[in-house]
Amino acid sequence: MNKAFIKIISFVSVISALMCLVGLGWVLKDQWTEAKTISPPKQATEAPEMTTNHQLQIAALGDSLTRGTGDPEGKGYVGYLIDGLEKKANKKFLLTNSAIKGQTSKQLLSQIKQTEIQRQIKQADFILLTIGGNDLFQGIVKSS
């Protein structure tokens, strides 16, 4: 093979590896620093009034996926799901997103015992839940 071709492939490989390491470092920094300082969830955002008597309520619980962390608009899958439901049903929904970035299953069990969270769950027509990613990630970090 041509030596210039091998040098180009080597250069691209080194750059790709460095980019992967930077990305991994970014994720680990995020997990190790911000995940330990769990902050209370933001207040529920109220949707405009509906023309019917009953406004559909959605309670969202879980970790950063449910919270919308990393999404440029901060909506995450919950926000996009509600947008789609509102368009299809031609109704507005009331969302209470109590998800917490970095939350584990054990922390979610503690959160569910809170009076306000129990009230939100009882009033909800739909409950969205995503949990377990941080449990898996902590298992990988501890075994390393």
Rank of each mutant, 00 (worst) to 15 (best):
M1Y: 13
I6E: 14
K101M: 02
I117S: 02
G23I: 02
G25V: 06
L129H: 01
L85V: 04
L95C: 08
Q31K: 03
K42R: 10
Q57V: 09
D30V: 05
Q103M: 14
Q57H: 10
F126V: 01
V27D: 02
T45Y: 02
G84T: 05
L94F: 09
K36H: 09
L28A: 10
I38K: 01
P41D: 13
Q111I: 07
K113R: 13
G68P: 07
Y80V: 06
A124E: 00
T66I: 06
I82F: 02
K106Q: 15
M19G: 11
K101G: 00
R67D: 02
F5V: 08
L95M: 12
N53M: 06
V22M: 07
D135P: 11
W32I: 07
L94Q: 05
K29C: 11
K142L: 11
L61E: 00
L56I: 14
Y80F: 14
P72V: 08
I131V: 14
G102C: 10
T52G: 01
T130A: 03
W26R: 03
L136K: 08
G132E: 12
V12K: 12
T115R: 15
V78S: 06
G70L: 11
A89L: 13
L109V: 13
S10R: 09
L81Q: 00
Q31N: 04
S143P: 02
F11K: 11
I100V: 15
S105R: 09
V22N: 04
G74D: 09
K88D: 14
M1G: 13
Y80Q: 08
K113Q: 15
S105K: 09
I131A: 07
T115L: 14
S110P: 04
V78C: 10
L18V: 15
I140M: 15
I117F: 02
K122S: 10
A4H: 09
L85N: 02
A59S: 11
L108I: 09
A35S: 09
D135M: 08
L85S: 01
T66Y: 04
I8D: 14
Y80R: 10
L108T: 07
L136N: 10
I82H: 00
G25T: 06
S144A: 15
